[in-house]
Each structure stands twice: as C-alpha cells, then as structure tokens.
Write a protein that binds this DNA or RNA. Structure first.
Lengths: 246, 246
DNA sequence: AATTTTCATTTGTCAGACAATTAAACGTCT
DNA sequence: AGACGTTTAATTGTCTGACAAATGAAAATT
C-alpha cells in the first residue's frame, strides 16, 4: 500500500484508493482490523484528519465499519446485500434524474431485465412471493390511493416478482432498475381506467407465475411494458400541447 | 437540512445524509454550489473537520466535486455513466467475493440479464459493435494467451454485446453483472479445447447478432451459459477429488 | 469467585493555523 | 482605452494539538 507523492492534491483520495485496492484484491480479508488512525497516519506520512477523510470515503461505500474503544478501530466490512441494494438504488436514481434519461429508455431497460427474471420466477416462486404480489395488486385497487402510493405499490409488486426468481444476485442487480423508475413513474397521473388496466395485468402476471407459465408471464410483461410506455407518451403529448396553447 | 442532536455519534454521517437527501430530492440542482465548509460548519454547529468528513463521504459516491480557489467549493456533481459504472463494478465484485456467492448463482444472473439484451442488440447493433465482438473473438484464438487475458477478452466481448443494445441504462445495469464475474472466471483453467468451444459460440453469437436473428442469439447464449457452468462444475469436482486424495 | 474500579487504547470532535490554488479586482504600461 | 502583469480575497487541503466518549482489559476490592 503506497501512495504517489508526485500528485500532491487529494491525499485522502489516494489513501482511500490504496486501502480500497487492498480490500478488493483480497489482501485484507473480511473483519480484518486496519491499523489505527495514528498508525495509518504515520505509515502514509500524513496527519490524522487526512487519514480520517480517507476512512470516511471507504465507510460511505460500506467497505469498512468503525468501532470506538480499546479494541476498536476500522474493520473490513462484509458487504451485505442490503447495503448493496441501497447504494445501487441511490446511484441508479441519480443517474436517471441527472442525465435526462428518457422514460422510454429507462422503461425499456427495466422491462427487458424483468422479463429475464420471469422464467426463473415462474419456476421457483414460493407461496410467499405470490402472496406479496396478490397483496400489492389488491392494494392498488383501493380507490383513495394517491398516485405516489400506487407507484410505491407497483414497485413492491415488481420487486416481489424479481425476488421470486430466488437469485439474490439478480435481485440486487434489478433493485436499481426497478426502484429508480419510481420518480419517473410519479410524473404520470393515473386515471381510474389506466390503473385498472395495470392491475389486471398484475393479476394476470401473478396467475401466470403461479401456473409456472413462463411464456404467458413474458407476454403479460411485454403488454405491461407497452402500456406503460403508451401512458407516458400521452402525458408527454398533453404536456407539449398545453405548452403550445399557453 | 437538519441533523438530529439526539444521536450524538457520527455527526459527519448525519450531515452527509442531510446533504445527500437534499441532492436526491432535487432541492440542490446539478452544478449548484454548496455553502463553503466554514458556512456549513456554522450551519450544522460542528467543526470544519467534521464537515469535511461528511463532504468526503459524498465525494466517494461522486455526488459532489470540489474545487479550490476563490470561486471554488463543493458542487453538486452530475453523475456520469462512467462514474456509475465504476461504482457498480466495485460493489458487485465485492458483493460476490464476500458473500460466498456460488459460481452457478452469479452465472445464472449474468446470462439471464445478457439474454434480455440480446433481442435489442440484434435489432440495433452497429458495425462498430460487431467489429469489437469479432476482434475480441479473434484475440481469444491467440495461442499464448493467459487465462486472465482470455477472461478479460471474454468480458470485453460481452460488454460489446450489451452495448449493442443501444440503451445506456441497460449497459450500466449490466456492467456489474458482467465485470464482477471476472474474478470468478479467473479461477477456471481453460483447456485449448474448452477455449475453442467458447470462441465458436462467440462467433456464432456475433453471426446471429449480425443477421439480426434474436432467437439464434438467445439459443447460443443459452448454450454458452450451460457450457460455462459445466466447466465450473468440472473444476469444483476436480478440486474436491484432489482434496480427498491428498 | 464475583464484582467493581481503574486504566489504556481508539475513535469522534473541536480549535486554530498555515499552505496552495484560483479567479476577480486592481494597477500599470503601451 | 485596452492589454497585461500584480495583488488580494476566498476557499479548499493539510497539519498540530487537544479533549471527550466509548470500550474492553486489567487490577483492585469485596
């Protein structure tokens, strides 16, 4: 673990990189204790605040955890699925919102990935997953539901669909795609009729998954994808028309 | 932007969260300048080093960038695809290596996702993507190639396949799935015969994509997935046998 | 032996200072 | 007046030293 003295700026970034590389290469195994801040400071020939800034960078990525006290210190952290989900969602959401990603592009990506899960979900779904999907579909029927709550339930439904594939890596990869769509979906106002169409498709998807009919589920997801894009298109058209007449 | 004085520990984490929430909610638009460190310190009633630790956390996630000088400061950063790729790969790689994810699980996820891209890639592939895929397939034929280099070329081939879908969101989501497999693949020793089989399938996939034959590409990817898993299974079996005899 | 106290270690936080960088304001010369 | 160098103010980057808080281990006490 060395740092390059030729690049004087951003010492904390260099130190963070050195430690990150050591962790990713496996040189520092999980739960290994890093040297104390004072020792790291001496080792890298920097002050303790600089070392601390580096450690905070790593903590932000859940690469280390810190503990106070006599036997405390910074430890290499086992990255949990939950932490990875969170980072994935944060990054995906910002990526979409900051780069003017069109609804069509994001939607295409999301449904392409979900359809990849469908055959596995059909094969491995448990009663628990089916129950969650039906519960969310039922929640979506409630008349007083706000658009936001409708979207949140939609996300929960699709997460259950993905989780039914029984592959945690797949669930992790899809978390970003599904969750990051929510802010985009929230821009849509759902009429009672369009809600009913979506709910119908959700029920059909659930039925197909329960019947372990992958082809049917794929077809329904394809329909849902097309309908969602159509809804978004209408919103955009209306917005443009309103802008012209104004 | 408030912080909770009831939880005394980890002030920098609380401050980072407050600013992160403000960015994610859109309250702080892209390129907006945050108050100076001294102002933030006063605002949150903490010292400047604490504020700095919070800012470094955000910098680690590429949420802000900092600039020195008279008009410098911390600015809300537009998250670039490149930055998002990097974080995605780091997180995915660690998730796989630290959680004893089986080769089968990771491989299943990867190929399920890639097969989701294939129809789009077949539809939209450009000459450039095809050229990259053929170039990597050709590189894989070189006799002196190390297993590591073979795997690296394999990753490059599959990234080109994914990029051919022409959906940057899809490319971003898949980056982790494809790249994080590399360390796992590196544990396999590829015989000349198994290499040839993989290369043949790569060529067939490229041909199918060029012919815009989505079904054929899907079939070939399915074959490649099965063959890869079979290879891994053999390695595991051999290793276990060696362990018993030893 | 069990419990309490003390203590050393380590992280968390603060205050103040100086260096490095940068752009704007200022002044000078043509 | 305009072009060009100089100063200056603002801001981040880094350092030093210090104290508080937590925490487990060792020592002392019952």
């Amino acid at each position: 673990m060395k740092i390059d003295p030729a690049k004087p700026a951003d010492l904390s970034a260099q130190i963070a990189k050195a430690i990150r590389d050591a962790i990713m290469s496996g040189a520092l195994p999980v739960d290994e204790r890093l040297p104390s801040e004072a020792e790291l400071a001496e080792k890298f020939s920097v002050s303790r605040p600089t070392v601390r800034e580096a450690l905070k960078r790593l903590a932000a990525q859940s690469l280390i955890r810190t503990q106070r006290g006599a036997t405390g210190g910074a430890f290499v952290n086992r990255l949990k699925y939950q932490d990875a989900y969170g980072q994935q969602i944060t990054t995906s959401t910002l990526l979409l919102s900051m780069n003017d990603v069109s609804f069509a592009t994001a939607c295409e990506a999301r449904y392409a990935l979900e359809r990849a899960c469908a055959p596995l979900s059909a094969q491995r779904r448990t009663a628990d997953h089916l129950a969650t999907m039906r519960a969310e579909a039922h929640r979506q029927c409630q008349p007083g539901l706000t658009d936001q709550a409708f979207c949140a339930s939609d996300v929960a439904f699709h997460r259950a669909l993905v989780d039914a594939a029984g592959n945690p890596v797949l669930s992790y990869q899809l978390a970003g795609a599904v969750e990051a769509m929510q802010p985009l979906m929230n821009m849509i106002t759902f009429s009672a009729r369009s809600r009913q169409r979506i709910i119908d498709l959700h029920v059909q998807i659930t039925n197909a998954i329960e019947a372990q009919d992958a082809a049917k589920a794929d077809q329904n997801l394809s329909d849902l994808s097309r309908y969602t894009q159509q809804l978004a298109q209408e919103v955009i058209t209306q917005r443009n028309t309103a802008g012209v007449t104004k």
